[in-house]
Deep mutational scan, measured.
Amino acid sequence: MAAGGDHGSPDSYRSPLASRYASPEMCFVFSDRYKFRTWRQLWLWLAEAEQTLGLPITDEQIQEMKSNLENIDFKMAAEEEKRLRHDVMAHVHTFGHCCPKAAGIIHLGATSCYVGDNTDLIILRNALDLLLPKLARVISRLADFAKERASLPTLGFTHFQPAQLTTVGKRCCLWIQDLCMDLQNLKRVRDDLRFRGVKGTTGTQASFLQLFEGDDHKVEQLDKMVTEKAGFKRAFIITGQTYTRKVDIEVLSVLASLGASVHKICTDIRLLANLKEMEEPFEKQQIGSSAMPYKRNPMRSERCCSLARHLMTLVMDPLQTASVQWFERTLDDSANRRICLAEAFLTADTILNTLQNISEGLVVYPKVIERRIRQELPFMATENIIMAMVKAGGSRQDCHEKIRVLSQQAASVVKQEGGDNDLIERIQVDAYFSPIHSQLDHLLDPSSFTGRASQQVQRFLEEEVYPLLKPYESVMKVKAELCL
């Protein structure tokens, strides 16, 4: 049975990233139509530049190519590739079939990587351009969430054990800070992308030097003109047959890092959902379990974690691919890159769409948070109580021993009897502590235990987050809708 299948058929496997999760716009960027249309555009740009620099290419040939950029006979191309065992030459023939007058000058002087690699770089750039505003929107939604809850005390956790208090907004800023680093890295790697350009079979530009009869300047002009037509500021000066596969490492490393950030955020949300302090959106008709109707599973956060793990592992592909590119190139890269580049971007696209949807509907339960604080705060307040007693004339050592005994009794009630923490009640009825009984409410005010959390939130948002989001103001209103 021949390899390949009808990918629109229910009898043929289709990647869930495309069929179930990723956005239509990201799927289109990695589609065959987008790819092969870009090949034709690159052939047109090459012909236009070659004509401008004096090669015998007519206006009629150029116009014929322009008129057929979208006229792609995919069936013919597939048949040609089956016959020739070469995808680029299959599309040269297919393009030439609908451009008979231009057929002889299509791909003039070029090698397969002229269309293959340059198209990949265009796709990487455009895919990054799709991700950047999506990530900015996630940051914006979380920034709104953090600002609104900047002063809401909550129990902090280290080692997932109760620690000092923080605020809900401050905790959210930990998430935002990681995503801001990801946004900066995505922008950097996007701006650092260079075009492969017009380089020939081993990167020496020998074929173009021959076409222009040894004119170095025209060869350099050709490279520059096509690079500018493709919208790049610069091209690699040095290439082998391909652009260095280190570029793929750079791009997928940034995406993998984004995956790590999203995994951490969504894990926190899942843990908070278990504590009943916070939940992701839950639709009115949504079913959490087929057997347990009360369940409210954090399905979206779980999906993000599941896909983020996949995204983090994909960076190993370009690392290994770059390491086995012998001399000017081997074909070890080809099949692998067809999979890992598309999957990385479709996965990143999915987790950003999902995280935006989550961040637009996060639900906080202040009463649950308050109750958990009441359970733990008495123990945390013991040092403040000791200091207040010393100020009232008591002995630190005597007070410490009193607190120690009462704390152990209260802990026994919590752990052995399943009761509430009654340390404060014990202190309130103990005559030894009568000098500070009137101060206990103040000493137990949760806001006095959150330090500068709310001020940190305000400063972080104003100095770091809002300036970073400013270039994306025009796209901030787009909502994230999930079908599944």
Rank of each mutant, 00 (worst) to 15 (best):
G4I: 15
G5I: 14
H7S: 12
H7Q: 14
S9Y: 15
S9A: 11
P10L: 15
P10H: 15
Y13T: 13
Y13F: 08
S15P: 14
Y21R: 00
A22F: 06
A22P: 12
S23T: 08
F28D: 08
R33H: 06
Y34R: 05
W39G: 07
W45S: 13
L46C: 07
A49Y: 00
E50R: 00
T52M: 08
I57Y: 05
E60H: 10
Q61L: 07
N68H: 09
L69H: 12
I72C: 10
F74L: 14
K75Y: 10
C98P: 07
A102C: 12
A103Y: 04
A103H: 07
G104L: 12
G104H: 10
L108F: 11
G109R: 00
A110H: 00
A110G: 14
S112Y: 01
C113H: 00
D117H: 03
N118G: 10
I123R: 06
I123P: 02
L124R: 02
L124H: 12
D129I: 13
V138W: 12
D144M: 15
D144T: 14
L155G: 02
P162Q: 12
G169C: 02
G169N: 04
K170Q: 05
W175D: 02
W175P: 00
I176Q: 05
I176H: 02
M181V: 08
N185H: 09
R188T: 10
R188C: 05
R190D: 06
L193C: 10
F195P: 05
F195L: 10
R196V: 11
G197D: 03
T201Q: 02
T202Q: 13
Q205A: 15
A206V: 09
D215E: 13
D216W: 09
D216F: 06
V219N: 05
E220Q: 09
K229D: 03
A230W: 03
F236S: 08
I238G: 06
Q241W: 02
T242Y: 04
Y243P: 09
T244D: 10
V247Q: 13
D248E: 10
I249C: 06
L252M: 13
V254C: 08
L258D: 01
K264Y: 04
I265T: 11
D268W: 03
L271V: 07
L271F: 05
L272T: 06
L272N: 05
A273D: 09
E279Y: 04
P281W: 05
F282A: 09
Q286D: 00
Q286R: 01
G288M: 02
S289Q: 00
S290W: 01
S301W: 01
S306M: 00
S306F: 01
L307P: 01
R309W: 03
T313C: 10
T313V: 08
L314E: 06
M316Q: 14
L319F: 05
A322L: 14
F327P: 01
E328P: 03
T330Q: 01
D332F: 03
D333S: 00
D333K: 04
S334L: 03
S334E: 01
S334Y: 02
N336K: 04
A342V: 14
T347E: 08
A348Q: 02
T350S: 14
I351T: 14
I358T: 13
S359T: 09
E360W: 01
V364W: 06
V364N: 04
K367T: 02
I373A: 07
P378C: 06
T382D: 02
N384H: 13
N384G: 05
I386F: 03
M389T: 06
M389H: 06
G393Y: 06
G394C: 09
S395L: 07
E401W: 12
V405H: 10
S407L: 02
Q408G: 13
S412Y: 13
V413M: 14
K415F: 04
E417Y: 10
G418P: 03
A431L: 09
S434D: 10
P435A: 10
D441Q: 15
L443S: 03
P446H: 12
P446S: 06
P446I: 05
S447N: 14
S447Y: 15
T450S: 05
T450P: 03
A453M: 02
S454N: 13
Q455F: 15
Q458D: 14
Q458S: 13
F460P: 00
E462L: 13
V465I: 15
P467W: 07
V475P: 15
M476P: 15
L482G: 07
C483A: 13
C483F: 09
